[in-house]
Amino acid sequence: MKPKVAFFDFASCEGCELQVADLEEELLDLIEIVEVVSFREIMKEHSNNYDIAIVEGSIIRPIDEKRLKKIRRIAKTLVAFGACATIGGVNKIRNPWQPEEVIKEVYGDIDFKDNEFFNVSKAKAVDEVVKVDYYIYGCPPPREEIKKVIIALVMGKKPDIPNYPVCVECKKNENICLFELGKFCLGPIARAGCNAICPTNGRACDGCRGILSEPDTKCVEDILKRYNLTYEEMKHRFTIFNYTLEEDR
């Protein structure tokens, strides 16, 4: 029997789901091995009977938490899909501000007290709300990795997600190191699995797949000196995708 798969989206750009639509002909292979029962972005059909829930987006409101918990109750396996879901991603950038401040900043003085759509909390990754079985990292997640995780789930094996830094893949691609070009890149400490797509395209890594281990001050002292950066400025580099690392821990 084919496993039943459902895709869900929360606060996100829906780029992750688009990556699935972008599998092109392989989307047809996908529906040979799994039964897609819900995928709102491209499907009208919907069922609440699924084995695997693939969840995109951050959780930013109590109503979203409620919806996510329901999904968790139904799904045997829950996969966090993309940076917003796995690590909070860009949605967490606003977390240093209080939710009320954020609302006021954007909507002015309109009173949203009784409106649950506007009952906004701090942005959370999916595993801050429910248990996550597997993670598909990245912003957007590479199509190769999406396929890898889905096939692993179909075969009943644990997906083999890299636990090593982007440098490994970047060097294999024979790129000129961005540090050599004077850019500050998170490649040495960011999780690989993207085939170093940013450095390969001449762009410094922002760590969208998460930071493997945050180096201590002593470790990067010399490097920061060379780039005329403070430790705080370096940490600011993390914050596009990896805000509030300490809090998360």
Binding site: P165, C167, K171, C177, G187, K218, V220, D222
Partner: peptide, 13 residues
């Protein structure tokens, strides 16, 4: 090794 970022670039090249 305290300064090592453990990126393994040295072995790859």
């Amino acid at each position: 090794s305290e300064k090592c970022l453990q990126c393994s670039s040295c072995t790859i090249v």
